[in-house]
């Protein structure tokens, strides 16, 4: 049996008027990887993952997930197939209790897999997720009242509650303190045991700790791809990105 590629894009493009945000990307991702996408601001990283998750429609090219062409599928159908996306700008239900945020995600997964969606079952599953991201003690608090770092964790928790095949994290550590970042890395490693992870990240320490492979985007195209060591040594990358110092 030929191996099905986990995720593959072919000549993927996204143009906004004259702006070529993503301009012909051929990209593959294997199951079980932790892949980081880096690149200077405006390189098209966020647009690229939006194309994968279906939030943005591709101008041309294809996205293939688990051997199926999902390019024209709306976002919610891709989520149902296992692509979960966590937002760059925290996007939670601010007025709802923390547990309800996760419960909405749990209900989605259960009803999409045809399982029972009793209130008790949903709550139990939501509590498990909160325990995993370490937010159990805030379960009944309004999500909007949480500290920023905790809101980021809740965002990840909502993705986790979907039990996705692929979890896309869009700049998850932005605005977190050092200790929060290191806890976060531990969490991602744990999640990676049963999900593939695609990570957009500016913090190079996080990238180097977590990523098995790194893809560098620049001006809507792939500039380089390889192990962290390769990327560190790559001249073109240094010129385009690393050379500019810390972002």
């Amino acid at each position: 049996m030929a191996d099905v590629t986990f995720l593959k894009t072919k000549d993927l493009k996204c143009h906004f008027g004259g702006i070529k945000a993503v301009d012909g990307v051929d990209f593959t991702l294997e199951k079980g990887e932790i892949r980081a996408i880096i690149g200077p601001n405006g390189a098209g990283k966020s647009t690229f993952v939006s194309l994968l998750s279906g939030r943005t429609e591709a101008t041309a090219g294809e996205v293939e997930f688990l051997g199926e062409n999902v390019t024209r599928l709306p976002a919610y159908k891709r989520v149902r197939r296992g692509i979960a996306y966590t937002f760059q700008i925290t996007n939670i239900y601010k007025d709802f209790p923390v547990i309800e945020n996760v419960a909405i995600a749990v209900q989605s997964r259960l009803s999409n897999s045809g399982e029972k969606t009793g209130a008790g079952r949903i709550r139990a599953e939501a509590e498990k997720v909160l325990a995993r991201v370490g937010l159990s003690q805030f379960a009944e608090r309004k999500a909007g009242e949480l500290a920023y770092g905790h809101q980021r964790l809740l965002e990840v928790g909502m993705g986790l509650a979907l039990q996705p095949e692929l979890l896309i994290l869009d700049e998850p550590t932005q605005g977190l303190s050092d200790s929060e970042v290191s806890d976060f890395c531990d969490l991602v490693k744990e999640i990676a045991q049963n999900a593939t992870i695609l990570l957009i990240e500016h913090n190079m320490d996080v990238v180097m700790t977590l990523a098995g492979r790194i893809t560098v985007l620049n001006q809507g195209r792939i500039l380089a791809e390889g192990s962290p060591e390769d990327i560190r040594a790559n001249r073109a990358v240094q010129d385009a990105y690393l050379g500019r110092g810390d972002e």
Binding site: S53, R55, P74, A75, Y76, K77, V79, R80, A84, Y85, F87, N91, I92, Y93, K94, D95, F96, E100, A103, I104, A105, Q107, S108, R109, S111, N112, T117, M158, L162
Partner: peptide, 23 residues
């Protein structure tokens, strides 16, 4: 479950779609 879904849509439609709901 529809009550929860309706509320979710009212509160944050984009997020609800990205949780796999057909909004």
């Amino acid at each position: 479950r529809y009550g929860r879904l309706f509320n979710a849509i009212r509160e944050n439609e984009a997020r609800t779609e990205m949780l796999g709901y057909n909004v």
